[in-house]
Amino acid sequence: MSLPIAGFAALVLATIALVALVVLRPSLMAARGGKILAFVALFFLPLLLTGLGTAAQMEHSKSTRFCLSCHVMEPYGRSLLVDDPAYLPARHYQNNRVPREAACFTCHTDYTLFGDYKAKLRGLRHVYVNYLGTIPKQIKLYEPYNNRECLHCHGGARAFEENEVHQPIRAELAKNATSCLECHDKVHNAHGLAGAKLWQEGKP
């Protein structure tokens, strides 16, 4: 469940007003109604807002803008815009095969905040390394890319299933025994994009 930021802000302001009322007029606490008001203002609403805020933060963190907000990810963002259909991320992003506002998350669904507890710890480590550590020159996935992420959309699609190259290895692809990236190997290539022509939407 996610709450629009304006709704969240209104609820925060209402809670602060209630808290101020309880704190500035403590005599209200002597009556039953005042005790209920204090419970709502100092227990129920703050916990509700923290829960709703966490859900909103999780939604934020799926956005492409969020992923690319760290400088180290900028070249990966550029790879979405490279004007070369051979690039897998560019082809998906520019042709709306993935939602543009959640492009990174769509293909990396088990990464950091969205994976298991190990992935979440890695996410915290990334923030630590970003500010206090040494950022590696070459960023690599922790595990080989899983075909599951490709087959989530392509599996069952006619163009994919009837493709004469895919048919003989279909079972291997499903088992992850053969990686999709063995053939579709032009992926981010983030550090080889210096000077590459970038696609600008609306300009031929």
Binding site: A9, V23, M29, G53, Q57, S63, R65
Partner: peptide, 30 residues
């Protein structure tokens, strides 16, 4: 109650501010 109110108010303000900022650090601050 005054101290509890102050802590809750400060916490909610921090949460509200961080929601306007799409950055991993904002999530940590939140």
């Amino acid at each position: 109650l005054q101290l509890a109110g102050l802590l809750v108010t400060l916490g909610l303000i921090v949460e509200l501010v961080t929601l306007h900022w799409a950055h991993p650090t904002a999530f940590l601050f939140f």
